[in-house]
Nucleic acid binder design. Sequence first.
DNA 1: GCAAAAGTGTTGTGTCTACACCCATGT
DNA 2: ACATGGGTGTAGACACAACACTTTTGC
Lengths: 236, 236
Amino acid sequence: MPEFTTTTAHVALAVVLQVRGARLRVLLWQRARPPELGAWALPGGLLGADETLEVSIRRHLAEKVDVRGLSHLEQLETRSEPRRNRAVRELATAYLGLVPADVDPVLPGDTAWHPVARLPQAAFDHRSIVLAGRDRLRAKLSYSNLGFALAPPQFTLSELRALYAAALGHEVSATNLQRVLVRRGVIESTGTRREAGPVGGRPAAVYRFRSRRLEITDPFAVLRPPHGARAGPGAG
Amino acid sequence: MPEFTTTTAHVALAVVLQVRGARLRVLLWQRARPPELGAWALPGGLLGADETLEVSIRRHLAEKVDVRGLSHLEQLETRSEPRRNRAVRELATAYLGLVPADVDPVLPGDTAWHPVARLPQAAFDHRSIVLAGRDRLRAKLSYSNLGFALAPPQFTLSELRALYAAALGHEVSATNLQRVLVRRGVIESTGTRREAGPVGGRPAAVYRFRSRRLEITDPFAVLRPPHGARAGPGAG
DNA sequence: GCAAAAGTGTTGTGTCTACACCCATGT
DNA sequence: ACATGGGTGTAGACACAACACTTTTGC
């Protein structure tokens, strides 16, 4: 029975995603010494003795970006393969962080935004963690209001369409995006309009998200409770 | 900077769920000494020095149940509140385990199945972990083939309906359940029939799940890629 | 024949995609 | 007027819930 936890370190990592230049990008820093010298790694660091993992990852992120820019943060998963870091036995709990498209944080010299679709050589198992974060974002864009975390406070539908397209990796119709999000009560018109561009065109209506906290808008595609019933936590 | 990880223990826990007697139940054991003497706790234990968390939870579960009975195991989340265990600083990574309804493992004397809808006094934060496991199961029943993990190898639609109803906490129509699962290719008829009961009635067709590994059947309720396109990992 | 249980047919609703069409602005 | 970009109308495709109806058995 290997019941001694000897020298197991625990780190918190964050997959911080933002749409920049029409591409979904992730914040990575380049390692300057072994192990994995030169490889790009997720920001994060050791869990403190009296911290939660979420407090810890916010503290470590603060060294890279202004954490007030983070519009959303949620836990992804914990990786525990004994050889994931060859140097030391290390568990890593990954978080997904999102930054709205209008925020442009100052970054340290070793840190940069990389397109998720074209990742550089990544350290440890960080490549697969980035992809897991991307997949979580894609899924939640579909059944929740998580778009708020990618979008600035105010936006036109064209702008929102571009954000969704970059995050989802496929074209999105502004027409249908508007109808889906308005029907669900996720976005609403502010009543104001954006002035037309230099080449003319009808001015776009300006929208905002009704809530900037995560809400599940499409809880169960199927197997809903029957019409008259409620599923309350006590049932079953 | 509290950068020393001194005496942080890491445990793996499992929310093992099964439908028994028309109710969704969870496997708990009663603590025989402090802290939390008498309270009911999730099975699990310390992570070994050279184990993954999944290997660890399988090892600890083996002390409670025949782990070959586990039809599914997936990671839920990691809890890190510093005071979640008053005695020691302890991180806990929770797993969701499922046992098919036809399996009846031998249990130690301190261990029992408790209805999730009527949990006894639970140790630490285990109550909320159980509820998180239940919610994960409910969600996945809706958009994946996870029903396979609750069902025996062969079953009639009435039997499957009862399992879904117990897990979801509301009535489920056998009629519509059959159509949804057959349309999605999740279940298929075996061609055989169950003999009629003592009071008569038409014999029921016997079904099975086409796959007994997790597959997402309803990936995105909305915001699907346009018809001609594919979203491949490289795009976006 | 009658009760019981299983399974199919059918209708109606809601939500989505696709695409045609109309609207408001600059030149 | 016409190009440009924004927005609405509408038709068709599905998937689902609800419920009536048919089928197959025991008695």
